[in-house]
Amino acid sequence: MDTGLLIALLNPTIALALGAAFLVLWSYQRHRPYLAVLALSYSLSAVGFLLQYFTLPIGMPLTKLVSNICFSIAGCCLAGAIVHRYGRKVPYVGIGALACGGLASFCWFLFIAPDLTWRILAMNFAFGGISLLVAAELRPVRNNGPTEKILFVLSLLSGVNFFVRTLIVVIAHGPFTSYDGFYGSSYWTTALLSHALLSLLIALCLFSAAALDVLKALKTETFTDPLSGLLNRRGFEERGMLLLRHCASARFPVALVLADLDHFKALNDVHGHGAGDRVIADFAAKLRSAAGARGVA
């Protein structure tokens, strides 16, 4: 098999495998829609890379446009999914403006003033801007855990890759006048390899985040009463011991409050168990509010 074709198929294969993996994860965790968005992102990325090598019946210029549209949607989906996963507000306007600006520039240098080098710069700078925008959104939460910190660093590296690597290669080996020999150039080789490495690292980090979500949910189910949402005995004993040790080391006073609902059986008998459940849930909410961040309910 031709070495160029083998390298060309590397990214689509990796992207399709990652897209399928995220789709399987989402099928078991439908309440986490960001997993479905990640599956879509990696699948579109695979299509984009395939269309760089295989021309559709619509002709080469339109095929390149479709390829870059796939890349742009994939980048937007990936950025939005990452930001959403970490509880940040997705900057739809910023992401959309960068993607649309890159595509508009691409179209200009494809149809109006044909120039392959400027098409490369336009799309890479757009993707670099999206990467740095994700890094800016992750910056406030980067110290919340290892996956947040790793993804923050990877977002910065991705932005540097799109800006710095592209400029260095274009200055050193450009300008590129046509697609003849382009797919054997140093630009394309470094682009494929860097994308493969970064996409794998980002995906592994997101897989770890999904696994942590599952473990957190299992721990919550183990330590929490499903009706009230309060800690059960097992959860209370573990959290209570941590709180006692903290208060002892900080010399803080500790209070234990025991509360009971009077005539609860009569409430169930008269108004039904549904009403009783609502009373328990409402009482539990008041306990959580009274305990605040420092207490354990």
Rank of each mutant, 00 (worst) to 15 (best):
G101A: 13
T220A: 08
S27F: 08
H273W: 13
T55D: 12
R139N: 09
N144G: 10
G295Y: 02
A20M: 11
L200A: 04
A293P: 02
L197K: 00
I14G: 01
L157Y: 06
G59S: 06
F182H: 07
E221H: 09
G181T: 11
F182D: 05
T55L: 01
N11G: 03
I171K: 08
F125S: 11
L200D: 01
F182W: 06
K219C: 00
A15P: 00
A39P: 08
V279N: 03
M241P: 00
G174F: 04
L50H: 01
V270N: 13
A74K: 00
R245I: 01
A284V: 09
M60V: 02
E237K: 03
L227R: 12
G159R: 03
A46C: 10
A291Q: 04
I112P: 02
S43K: 03
A126W: 05
T147D: 11
G4W: 00
L230D: 03
L256H: 04
P12L: 01
T220R: 13
G159T: 05
A191E: 11
T117Q: 14
N68F: 09
S67M: 04
Y183L: 13
D260E: 14
P12Y: 02
I112S: 13
L212H: 11
S178N: 14
L197A: 15
F127L: 07
V270Y: 14
Y187K: 01
K64V: 07
V270K: 09
L231N: 09
V214P: 00
F106P: 02
S67F: 01
L212A: 12
V47F: 15
H84P: 00
S178Y: 11
P12K: 02
G96C: 14
T147C: 13
G295N: 07
A8W: 01
L6V: 14
A209P: 06
I280N: 12
I112R: 11
A255V: 13
P114T: 11
G274M: 06
G159A: 06
L243P: 03
R278L: 15
K64E: 12
L154P: 08
C247R: 12
K149W: 11
A191C: 07
T177Q: 13
D269V: 07
A209L: 06
S249D: 11
S228P: 02
P175R: 08
G184L: 07
R234C: 04
C107H: 02
L98C: 09
L10C: 12
L197G: 08
G292Q: 10
K265A: 04
R251W: 00
L5T: 15
L256D: 01
S41K: 03
V93T: 15
G272A: 12
G87H: 14
T13W: 03
I82W: 02
H263I: 05
L267I: 15
A74Y: 04
S194F: 06
Y183S: 03
L192I: 15
L16Y: 09
L9A: 14
A135V: 05
S289W: 07
R288E: 07
L5P: 00
F162C: 09
L132D: 02
N143I: 00
A293D: 11
L242G: 10
T177V: 14
L215R: 10
G292T: 05
L121C: 07
A99H: 03
T55N: 05
G181P: 13
A217W: 06
V254Q: 09
G181E: 14
L9E: 07
R245A: 15
R294G: 15
M1D: 08
C77G: 01
G292L: 00
A291M: 05
L197H: 01
V270Q: 15
